[in-house]
Amino acid sequence: MSLTYLVLEDEPLIAMDLEFAIEDIGHEAVVAVNNAEARQAVADNTIAGAILDVSLGDGETCEPTAKLLSEHSIPFVLHTGDLDRVGEHLRALNAPVLPKPQAADDVIEKLVGMAEKA
């Protein structure tokens, strides 16, 4: 069964790579570049799981989306190049943190595993 995954990522090439990796295994991806788009995507789709880039530029972090997903019990992973900047609030949400750089396939494999368990 094809599921829909959310990719929150402001770097287009990384977003595209993750999107392709999701499509490779027969699922669908919705890409958001900021929290507002992510909120809309969650409202418009049945999201099975999400990959959240922690730093979205201009000091924006994925925290609002992480909270929203937690409220909906949607599993997600944090994808970041700066482990120090994950911050206490995000750590408190207890999602796996996958350090960048990491092969897109591995990121997706981890997420799909979580979504299947959920």
Partner: peptide
């Protein structure tokens, strides 16, 4: 140093994306 590190990791991630695509 942290800022440079962060950016470089992102560069590696982007390069990985280019290669995959």
């Amino acid at each position: 140093a942290r800022e440079v590190s962060h950016r470089l990791k992102n560069v590696f991630a982007v390069v990985g994306g280019i290669v995959n695509i």
